[in-house]
């Protein structure tokens, strides 16, 4: 699987990362290498194999619908790079 620069740019965009041209070239190479290594999985016929998303056979883990204390607002916001009026502040979002 040979990746193109466009592939790398598309993925970078999805992941909200930006790269210089050299970095993109490097990623084209490195990711292609890794994906080539991944090719070996295609040796396996898995058409009748169920995927394992969870290794443990557990299901139905629930909590009761009970309200527990929330954080003090001060604590909720204490790590915010920017805050205003009790909220997290971000650059203007145009809807």
């Amino acid at each position: 699987m040979k990746l193109t620069k466009e592939d790398v740019k598309y993925v970078a965009d999805l992941a909200r990362l930006e790269f210089t041209n050299e970095e993109i070239d490097r990623y084209v190479h490195q990711l292609t290498d890794i994906l080539e290594y991944e090719e070996q999985l295609n040796e396996l016929d898995t058409s009748n194999v169920a995927p394992t998303a969870h290794v443990l056979p557990i299901h139905n883990v629930f909590r009761e619908d009970v309200v527990t204390p929330s954080l003090d607002r001060e604590k909720a916001l204490m790590n915010a790079p920017e805050q205003d009026k009790g909220c997290f502040k971000v650059p203007k979002v145009i809807e």
Binding site: T68, P69, S70, R73, A76, F88
Partner: peptide, 16 residues
Amino acid sequence: CGCSTTFGAEENTQTC
């Protein structure tokens, strides 16, 4: 999570 769902609380007071 156990935070309340009550509408109209002050901003960011129902978070954990």
